[in-house]
Each structure stands twice: as C-alpha cells, then as structure tokens.
C-alpha cells in the first residue's frame, strides 16, 4: 500500500466529525431534517472512508462482520419490540402514546427508539454490503 499521507491525515480529522454529524442527524431528526435512515448512511460512510484509506482489514478490526450481523438484526428488533411494548401497555401495535405517562412524552420516547432502530439497521446493512462487495475482490 502507498503512503497517501494527506489522505490519512485529513480523513483522521474528518471521521470523528462525520460520526458526530451522524449522531446529530440521528437525534435531531425530531426538530430538523434527518432521521434514522440518513444518520445510518452517514455513519456507515465514515467507516467506509476509513476502509478506503486504511484498508479493509483495519476497518474490519474496528467493526467485525459478526457484530455487524447482530447489529443489523438488533435494529429491526428494537423497532418491532417498541410495537410489542405498546401492545403490553394497553395500546395498538406501534401506538407510542401509551408508553409514558402523557401521550406526548410517549410519542417522543417511541419516535426516539424507533429512529434509533432504523439508524442501527441501516448503518449495519450498508457496512455489510460494502464489506462483502469489497471483501470479495480480496485475493
């Protein structure tokens, strides 16, 4: 591998900022544009940038594929289990109003959890797809 000093230094500056921006988009989706889908893609793009600059093996050391598989299913599970939780609290499936003391607080909690599930699944699946495509071309 070549040295690519400028790429390495700049991406070391950029990657934390990208992750921070992803978290902002994730948890600020209630108030501005954004949400789980966009945040998941932005987060996975930071890891993809790392993989492009420092190599696939280094990136797979940070997030192993086994953990990604668990995370991908965990996100969908969080989403679905919020629905189950609202059934057990006496409402319909995915009716968040019953999750907390007041309906508005329940909706806030429900939307936050659901978006978190979306973000986890989307970022994990994007990384799974990227890793399996790129890992395939490895000798």
């Amino acid at each position: 591998m070549t040295h690519n000093l400028i790429l390495r230094v700049i991406s070391k500056f950029l990657i934390p900022l990208i992750i921070l921006f992803a978290l902002y988009v994730q948890f600020h989706g209630d108030f501005g544009p954004g949400g789980g889908f966009q945040a998941g893609v932005i987060f996975s793009s930071s890891i993809i940038l790392y993989a492009l600059v420092f190599g696939l093996d280094a990136a797979e050391k940070i997030i192993p594929t086994a953990i990604l598989r668990i995370l991908a299913s965990l996100g969908a599970l969080i989403y679905a289990s919020v629905g189950i939780a609202s059934i057990f609290s006496g409402g319909n499936y995915l009716n968040y109003s019953v999750l907390a003391d007041t309906p508005v607080a329940g909706q806030h909690l429900g939307i936050l959890l659901v978006e978190l599930g979306v973000g986890i699944t989307v970022s994990a699946v994007m990384l799974i797809i990227f890793f399996s495509f790129v890992g395939r071309s490895r000798p």
Partner: peptide
C-alpha cells in the same frame, strides 16, 4: 399529538410507523 416540530418525522415514525 406528538410534540415533534418536524412533521415529516412525525408522519414517518409515528402516524405511518408500520410503513417505516
């Protein structure tokens, strides 16, 4: 209903949660 200022998020995550 939801106290969420971004209507898009309210529709996507709450009113149409099943779609999402």
């Amino acid at each position: 209903d939801t106290g969420v200022p971004n209507v898009v998020t309210a529709v996507l995550a709450s009113y149409r949660g099943f779609d999402t």
